[in-house]
Write a protein that binds this DNA or RNA. Structure first.
Lengths: 195, 195
DNA sequence: CTGCCCATGTAAATCGTTACATGATTAC
DNA sequence: GTAATCATGTAACGATTTACATGGGCAG
């Protein structure tokens, strides 16, 4: 169900087409949800059927684009959802699973696993850091649209919550990098260089 | 595909029935994967069809239990998988999504969200800490079975990798708790007490 | 003999990915 | 004119959850 609310969240900042949403959800850079067009377009139809969004089609437009807006009902549904207490997802961590069963592999294989983990999170960290500075400079289209629609005295809170969320992600990435670094160091001391 | 290898991993420590696996995968306490019986039993059949596991049925057993073992092919498949470089899952964090769209809610709703986050991770932390001491004391059936099947000089590495994985999870939980605590403190200073 | 856990499943629904189809617009 | 990007979809598959079915064993 979260895709539904991720879309409503997007549209609560600014109206947009399915393509706009798909671009935003392509790599999770601007949002906290990833999804592909093949999931987004059908969901938009369901949201329209629910009366939570409305799409304005320009009959002149040869590319049959539709710009979707939240309806008051959609806005209320989003508001209800964000305030709900949610279930946390079950634990499913394929990389941890690999690690605990790597005990029959060569030290090189273990090291390669940890090194890969570190590189992955270094890349994520770079992304989150870039995003944080964009949010702090209010340089994201989504964010500026959201701010524009709201009174100036709320702007600080809106930005602060986004920065808070990003700092959580930054801290996560830094943690994974430090964990992998420490683990590599620890294994360097306790594993033979060759099997 | 990871469920498949989680099952192979379980069976690489000790033979077991579908029910044994289902119990282990019920809450992710002993493993890093959660799954329900309705997913496990069909997967066991597929693994058997692949020739990666073998089930010994005791015709005397009125409850038609079958104890599954890894075949050499299954063991090799597990080994290949753990050494593969895996794709990391896409970003999908419903709680972050809620947080960034909580900017139109009352300070109480924001606080409740963060407090809930903290409680959730305090519970996880308690679980990981318990597990770590069980692993260090070698007091888990799965682990003792794995150690029993392997030469004594490998025991330290087997335990160390499991502890390493658990310490990663412990650090994650501590991070989430600290993040939520800091965020609550920060908001206490910057938000009005009542709306 | 009743209620609870043991034990193994099936069926349907939901959520997400992969592969494919189609056509318009823009930059070179 | 052709390649890249814009734009909207459909179909099939795979992974996971929910709901249901069935029967054995054991404790009070």
């Amino acid at each position: 169900m979260s895709l539904r609310y991720a879309i409503l969240g997007f549209l609560s900042s600014t109206p947009g087409t399915g393509y706009d949403i798909a671009r935003e959800f392509a790599d999770g850079a601007g949002s906290y949800w990833q999804a592909l067009p093949s999931q987004i377009y059908p969901e938009l139809r369901e949201l329209e059927a629910l009366g939570w969004i409305e799409g304005d089609a320009d009959p002149e437009d040869r590319m049959r684009r539709r710009v979707f807006n939240l309806t008051p009902e959609g806005d209320a549904a989003l508001q209800r959802w964000v305030e709900e207490v949610g279930e946390y997802p079950p634990e499913r961590d394929a990389e941890r699973l690999r690690l605990i069963f790597l005990d029959r592999s060569s030290p090189e294989a273990i090291r390669a696993h940890l090194a890969h983990h570190r590189v992955h999170h270094e890349n994520r960290l770079a992304m989150w850091l870039t995003l944080r500075s964009l949010v702090e400079q209010r340089g994201l289209r989504q964010l500026t649209a959201r701010l524009a629609a709201r009174p100036a005295e709320e702007h600080a809170l809106i930005v602060r919550l986004k920065v808070l969320a990003l700092e959580g992600n930054i801290a996560r990435a830094e943690l994974e990098i430090a964990w992998a670094r420490d683990a590599l160091e620890h294994l360097r001391l306790h594993l033979p260089c060759r099997e």
